[in-house]
Design a protein around this nucleic acid. Structure first.
Lengths: 195, 195
DNA sequence: TCGTGTTGTTGAATGCAGTACAACAATACG
DNA sequence: CGTATTGTTGTACTGCATTCAACAACACGA
């Protein structure tokens, strides 16, 4: 994590927010692929080296926010007994989307065409979906659910989370909340627990 | 596509099979990440440039076989009326795994640890799963299924296909067939069509 | 036999992502 | 004022992927 500017050592000159803003501007102006890290750094007023002090990759600018939330959720799902009841699982999933504000990722979903991001988003979304699905499946299996059913369950929940996020972001990320979308989707999946 | 060696023009010196074999040898010896395209080309007896005449990337060596099958399936799913009945969808999915023989991808699944491929496989599997899921969801929606249910349905079917492939390959890819795995998984999902 | 068109091979050059690292700058603290 | 700590920067390097021009090997017809 990034330490506070005040304290020991040289204070930071920039911030994740500043760099992310510069990056998003460029993504909108000329597309994601056509924007190099060097350009982002230049617009943000730092060196290319420093970019990597704030983000580990270009994609990290878009995904770091969601990734942190997913990592927390995956951690919780790994604890014993986390997959016993549908309510438990659904509560964990809610924490992923809870209080989510418009961020670079939401902007990317909302302007995927302008940024030339359709493929990239599909690709990276699938990765997060897979991560979540795996954790969910393992939690379900630990609770005694048979493997294939657990896989289906995990995939269904994971797609619901990512879909909710996408729908919310495509709508402009100003109106409503991704949680509302999720609450609408979850009941359909609950049936899968028993069958 | 690659044209036959006999015909007009200079005949090919190598083949996808030759290069794929060289690549797999190196993957097993020293891992996937640690193997550069230059090394693969050298072992296969061609230049680095020529590698790209046969494969579009290092990952393509592993995935081109499955990608072609998925592309066909996605094309079929895009035709009108392709998602009307569960039997239709399941028949299309069967064509993806039908007659699949041990190939670089199966070898990779079976030796993921030795090749240091766990992350890469998770990542790339998720991408294919997402592609399939999208096509399936759209076919279901075209058949009148409500959106969220269609998404869940598509995700469930897609994970079943990829899981079947993985289970088969992890078992050595010699015994059984991935189709058998799929036949075992599909009935659990059929319920989702009606709810 | 000799062009000619077609196709495959090769090397060189380029741009970009990501990593490693050493030199240097700016702060707090004793 | 020295020292430890932390942030910034430039440089160099590896590797992926693309582009392009030059060249090589074949079939075919004149």
């Amino acid at each position: 994590m990034i330490r506070p500017a005040r304290g020991v050592g040289r204070p930071r000159v920039s911030s994740r927010e500043t760099i992310a803003e510069a990056a998003c501007e460029l993504f909108l102006e000329q597309g994601y692929e056509r924007t190099s890290i060097a350009e982002i750094a230049q617009r943000a007023g730092v060196s290319r080296s420093s970019f990597f002090n704030y983000f580990s990759s270009k994609g990290d600018v878009l995904w770091s926010g969601l990734d942190e939330r997913i990592a927390v959720a995956v951690g919780v799902l790994g604890e014993p007994g986390a997959g016993e009841w549908p309510e438990q699982i659904q509560a964990v999933l809610a924490t992923i989307l809870e209080g989510l504000e418009p961020d670079p990722l939401a902007l990317a979903f909302g302007n995927a065409a302008a940024m030339g991001l359709e493929d990239e988003l599909q690709r990276e979304s699938a990765l997060r979906q897979g991560r979540l699905a795996t954790a969910l499946s393992e939690a379900a299996r630990a609770a005694g659910v048979e493997r294939i059913r657990a896989d289906v369950l995990g995939a269904a929940y994971a797609v619901a989370v990512l879909s909710s996020l996408r729908v919310w972001a495509e709508g402009g990320a100003g109106h409503g909340s991704p949680l509302a979308q999720l609450q609408h989707a979850l009941p359909r999946i609950t049936d899968l627990h028993w069958g």
